[in-house]
């Protein structure tokens, strides 16, 4: 039982973290909280990749010239390394969008933004289109 748990312990934690991130994204209305939820989700995917790349008894993939050494798989490391930097760049883009949304609607709460948006569309003048249809 414990053997089996040790074999898939990392994957179980990854799934718990992933679902926590998903929960934040769905249940919370604050946009900043949602972005942090996304980054938790993202980090859980990183952990999943790195866990797959681990070789038991291996070491970091920096060659030491010793032919008998066992190394972990470098490929997931490369993929995740670039993904982290791209992740922060896209997070920055999301934050920029949040700032502009805050400027336009005066709120970063999802429900308030939807309400403000609804008010805007109700208050929008419809005259030119109505004239056109007549």
């Amino acid at each position: 039982m414990i053997e089996q748990l040790g074999d898939s312990w990392n994957y179980i934690i990854v799934i718990i973290l992933m679902m926590t991130g998903l929960f934040i994204v769905i249940a919370r209305t604050n946009l900043i909280k949602k972005l942090i939820g996304l980054s938790i989700f993202q980090t859980s995917v990183f952990l999943f990749y790195i866990s797959l790349g681990k070789v038991a008894g291996g070491t970091a993939p920096i060659l030491n010239g010793n032919p008998g050494t066992l190394y972990s798989n470098p490929l997931p490391h490369v993929l995740i390394l670039t993904a982290i930097v791209v992740g922060v760049a896209t997070t920055a883009l999301g934050l920029a969008l949040i700032l502009r949304i805050n400027e336009a609607f005066g709120s970063i709460e999802e429900d308030e933004i939807i309400a403000a948006k609804l008010n805007q569309s109700l208050a929008r003048p419809r005259r030119p289109l109505d004239e056109a249809s007549e």
């Binding site: 760049a89 920055a92 934050l95 700032l99």
Partner: peptide
């Protein structure tokens, strides 16, 4: 690229109100 993007992003965020 990464240096200047990170720096530009920070400057843009920090100076948001003044720039506008």
């Amino acid at each position: 690229t990464v240096t200047s993007v990170m720096l530009a992003v920070f400057h843009a965020f920090a100076g948001f109100v003044e720039d506008r």
